[in-house]
Amino acid sequence: MTKLEIPTMAELAAKGEAPDILFWVGCAGSFDERAQRITRDICKILQHVGLKYAILGTEENCTGDPAKRAGNEFLFQMQATMNIQILDGYEIKNIVTACPHCFNTLKNEYPDLGGHYEVIHHTQLIQQLIDEGKLKAEGGESFKGRRITYHDPCYLGRGNGVYEAPRKALESLDAQLVEMKRCRSNGLCCGAGGGQMFKEPEKGKKDVNIERIEEALETQPEVIAAACPFCMTMLRDGIKIKEKEQEVQVLDIAEITARANGLT
């Protein structure tokens, strides 16, 4: 694979260029070590299909999602207003996000504050690229016949009705897609949403991610597919606690796609 070129908006603007699409990396994708690998795989996919893209780099700020869900509307709107100024400054029209929370907030909540963009999640982009024949699941690791179960992130699935795109991406690999009992609109949360990622859970019988990982393991998967960096953390923690790290991998749809296309 050729060297990864990841331009920032500032760099493109300095050259007088504009990208086709802005890649909104998100905080997890920027700082969380595990999520950074997903971020790079998304970049590899974008570069592989020849899409002209850019990131905001140090000009990107948290969308404010965790603040809003935790009740801090002030902080959310401060973040949103700053981000909208930057996005509008670069005349951004199209955005792809790595995180369903960024996706939901940018797409649904920024318009109220004057930020209007075409926002898609990376699984939707991957599906489009497969449909257009630009991604073929060739030249890389084979997922043919492997048992994969997909965990629906709440803000992608129930929040925005995106159930098919990630599944299409998996189906294109000829993988054996096995559904959990609670899937699609009945999917069970990983336990991270609504600010839970940043606090201790209230007391109860067990943690939500354990409940979810037990259900995922019932499908006897080789791979648990995720599409959200927070779900990724929760599911991996669950796998570690269940001591299944050797048998079961937790991978993002972007990572699976990058591997299948030999981009890693």
Partner: peptide, 19 residues
């Protein structure tokens, strides 16, 4: 979030270090 633009304690300047 207020100070670093992220929910964790990382410096804003390091945001693109993953590259």
């Amino acid at each position: 979030m207020e100070n670093n633009g992220a929910p964790w304690k990382y410096a804003q300047a390091d945001r693109a270090n993953w590259r």
